[in-house]
């Protein structure tokens, strides 16, 4: 697959922290509109990979391209976010003292400069967009509540809603169901599959039950590089994957 047709293209990426190779010659390609699940034991480099894609960490070597020809290593977090990559953190991070609505309003795509923000007037188009997202993330009823009052799972959803408000092309979702009940997990899987219809998505998750529910191609990382790739059944049957997980 040529670079031009991809939404995300990582080739030969390495990064090390004080001699520790967090990412080691990692190559990963995501097609436009694809949803991919990434699994791997602790310290496999999943979060560091996200850091590299979102511009938080600069790779020592290797190429990182977005949307075919945008070199992500040349941009910083805010640039990359505006270009269309949204990221959900491992730990839900929302603006706790703002209402659910304000959280979404701040995330809405639009100018990101200071002066427009000072003299900003909310428009009906914005209100509609927020309404739609609230419905998608099932938080319509909590619109005016402070985000701090939401449950853990609802915060996760709000964060996903903020990603949607950004209107990104690619979503990076880090452990979306950590700490969720089974019902919430199923709901989240449905939500993500919904989103994946119109966006490219990368999901990092430990919960195999959830990954199975997503029913997408799986990449298993280990020690900073790709160990195995394919359907969940294929990856789960891979001797090396079993060894890594069970430590044989």
């Amino acid at each position: 697959m040529g670079r031009k047709d991809t939404i995300l293209y990582l080739d030969g990426v390495s990064v090390s922290f004080d001699g520790f190779k967090a990412i080691n010659n990692l190559s990963l390609v995501l097609a436009e509109g694809e949803m991919r699940a990434i699994i791997g034991p602790n310290g496999a480099g999943k979060t560091t990979m996200m850091d590299i894609i979102t511009g938080k960490t600069r790779p020592d070597t290797g190429e990182v391209f977005f949307d075919g020809d945008i070199d992500l290593t040349r941009h910083d977090e805010a640039d990359i976010a505006v270009m269309g990559i949204g990221r959900k953190f491992q730990k839900p991070t929302v603006f706790e003292s703002h209402s659910v609505e304000d959280n979404l309003l701040l995330a809405l795509a639009g100018p990101r400069r200071i002066l427009p923000a000072i003299f900003h007037r909310s428009s009906s188009a914005e209100a509609e967009r927020v309404e739609a997202i609230l419905q998608t993330i099932r938080l319509t009823g909590r619109r005016y509540d402070p985000a701090a009052d939401l449950s853990h799972g609802q915060k996760q959803w709000l964060e996903i809603g903020m990603l949607l408000a950004q209107d990104p092309k690619l979503l990076l979702v880090d452990e979306p169901v950590a700490g969720m009940t089974d019902a919430e997990t199923e709901e989240t899987a449905r939500l993500l599959k919904d989103i994946a219809r119109t966006h490219s998505v990368i999901v990092v998750e430990h919960d195999m039950h959830f990954v199975r529910e997503l029913d997408v191609k799986v990449t298993c990382l280990h020690e900073g590089s790709v160990l195995s790739e394919g359907s969940l059944d294929h990856v789960a049957a891979d001797e090396r994957v079993i060894e890594v997980y069970l430590g044989r």
Binding site: F17, D18, F20, A22, T47, T48, D51, K56, T57
Partner: peptide, 8 residues
Amino acid sequence: ALKGRAVE
């Protein structure tokens, strides 16, 4: 200083 993902 230590470098690394966890630091920041």
